[in-house]
């Protein structure tokens, strides 16, 4: 599984990294972010691409699994 660690990066970098990873990866992609703004932007992108996303939160870090 491909993992994108976008913690601490400011927009639009997390989204750009996610887009690139989704394009490249065969299977699911895991994205780590630590702020609600990139989380919402990524979820919007996932919805647009008609993919599924599962979000879990632990200590302020959001793990988004895109499949």
């Amino acid at each position: 599984m491909m993992t994108v660690d976008a913690r601490g990066l400011s927009c639009p970098e997390p989204l750009m990294m996610t887009q690139a990873a989704v394009k490249k990866a065969d299977g699911p992609v895991t994205v780590l972010v630590d702020s609600v703004i990139p989380r919402d932007n990524i979820l919007k992108f996932v919805k647009k691409k008609k993919k599924n996303a599962e979000v879990t939160e632990e200590n302020g870090v959001f793990t988004i699994v895109i499949s």
Binding site: R7, G8, L9, S10, P12, E13, M16, D34, G60
Partner: peptide, 13 residues
């Protein structure tokens, strides 16, 4: 520049 990989790096809590 962003598309070319520009970044100012991570911020930490």
């Amino acid at each position: 520049a962003l598309k070319n990989g520009y970044t100012l790096g991570r911020a930490y809590e």
